[in-house]
Amino acid sequence: MYGKMKKLWQIFATMFYIGLFTFGGGLAMLPQMKRVFVQKRGWVTEEEIVDYFAVSQSIPGVIATNTSVMIGYRMAGTAGALCAAFGAVLPSFLVLIAVAVFYQAFVAHPVMIGALRGISAAVVALLFYTVWGLRKTTLRGIADVLLCLTAAALLLLLGVNPVWVILGGLAAGLFRAVFRARRRAP
């Protein structure tokens, strides 16, 4: 009982911490999540986190919340999912309540604008670093590299909705699964 409560608290506290420092949307959570859940605590593997992001993007709702729910559920069932979601949402909630009151001073303040320029630079560095870090587990051959580049090109050049891009990857994956199953069982 004590062990379970402790784990739920850890899930909540970790998600709160990550939520407080996520700028730039759902995908920008990935570096923090990877660092804490995979490298520091060893609770999930890198592949699992990447899979959760793929699933979270393809179902309705807030991506960051969906991903938190998947990780929380994986670690401690429905209670874990609720703690993770609550932890991920609470920092936003508290910050926005405070900010909504005097936002006009906040939006235009030079110190805020400067801080955001710095934070954006950090987010850019983190996202490129994440792509680099994911290459080993997600890009295992020339076909994977092509899938990755095609996905990026579809999003950037043609403005395709990410959901369709992921479903495209899923279709490619089904072909691959059938192909490999046939090869394994001659």
Binding site: S120, L127, D144, I166
Partner: peptide, 30 residues
């Protein structure tokens, strides 16, 4: 195994999404 084989093609797409996010935030912010 079948799910793992399928996801092995979805994972590169997620990396592609992050690459796209990195490039578009870089374009916007930098």
């Amino acid at each position: 195994q079948a799910v793992q084989d399928t996801m092995s093609a979805v994972r590169p797409v997620v990396t592609g999404l992050i690459l796209a996010a990195a490039l578009s935030i870089a374009n916007e912010a930098l």
